[in-house]
Design a protein around this nucleic acid. Structure first.
Lengths: 123, 123
DNA sequence: CTTTCATTTCGACATGTGGCGAAGTATAAC
DNA sequence: GTTATACTTCGCCACATGTCGAAATGAAAG
C-alpha cells in the first residue's frame, strides 16, 4: 500500500505529470525540463526526486548533464499501464499539445546555450 | 487537464482509496464507511464529497440514510480502467485484506445499531 | 410540531506540499 | 588548482489538505 500511495501521490501534481509526458518521447536533460516547465531549477529537481523515489523515472549522469527517462521496471505492477492510460487522456489537452510544441523547439537548441539562458537570466 | 488532475488528486489519499475499494463490492451507507475507516463522520463526509466531485462515486438518498457507490459513467475516459488497475494492486495489500474482513462484519450488523454505536461512543 | 437521528457544512488547527533563492556538490574547462 | 557549469540540497514561506468537534440540515419517529 505504501508503494501504491507513493506512486499516486507522485502522479497527483500537474508539473510532474507534464514531466512524465515529456519523457514519453525519450530521455531529457534537466535543463530541458527546466525550460519546458518554466520553474526554478531547484523546484524541478525536487519534482524529479519525487518521481524517482516513486520509481516512475530513472536517471543517468553524463558529464555535467543529468538525463532522466521513464522507468523500464516500474515499482508497482500496474504503474506502466496506469501511465499509458493517463497519457492517452492527457494527449488531447491543450496544455500537452502546447508542451509538445515547446519541447520540440527546446530540443532543437544547443544545450550549452540553453543552459546559459536559463541560469543567467533571472526568472 | 483540470479533470484529469481532479481524479488523480482524489486518488492520492489512502482513506479515499480504501473507500473506493470498499465500494467495489457494491453500494454502502455512510455510517458503514465511517465504521470501516474509523474516522470522524465529518471527515468521511468530506472525503466522499471529493470523490463525488471527481465523479468517481455517485450517491443516493434513502430516508435518513445516504448510500454511495462507484460511478457508472466516469468523468475521464480512462478513470474506470485506472481504478481496475489500482484495485488489482491493492487487493494484495495487508490493509485491504483487513478492510475486507472488517467490512464483512460491518455489513452483517444492523445499520441502526451500528449508528447508535458510532454516534454515542466518543471517538 | 417537537425530538431524534444520519449526514453535511463550518471553523479551527496541524501537517504536508510546492515554490523560491542561497549555499553546497561534483564535474568540466581553463 | 582555480573557475565555471549543471545540478541538488537546504531553509524558508505561502498555501493546500486532512482531521476534528460544533453547529446546521433535513428526514423520520414520536
Amino acid at each position: 500500500m505504501r508503494e501504491i500511495m507513493e506512486v499516486l501521490k507522485a502522479l497527483a501534481d500537474e508539473n510532474r505529470l507534464r514531466t512524465l509526458f515529456a519523457l514519453k518521447g525519450g530521455e531529457l536533460c534537466v535543463c530541458q525540463l527546466i525550460a519546458l516547465l518554466e520553474l526554478a531549477p531547484s523546484t524541478v529537481s525536487k519534482h524529479l526526486t519525487i518521481l524517482r523515489a516513486a520509481r516512475l523515472v530513472e536517471s543517468r549522469k553524463d558529464g555535467r548533464w543529468m538525463y532522466y527517462r521513464l522507468s523500464k521496471e516500474f515499482r508497482t505492477p500496474s504503474a506502466g499501464k496506469l501511465l499509458a492510460l493517463l497519457f492517452k487522456d492527457m494527449a488531447k489537452t491543450r496544455r500537452m499539445v502546447e508542451d509538445r510544441n515547446r519541447l520540440k523547439r527546446i530540443c532543437g537548441e544547443d544545450m550549452a546555450i540553453l543552459c546559459r539562458r536559463l541560469f543567467c537570466k533571472p526568472r
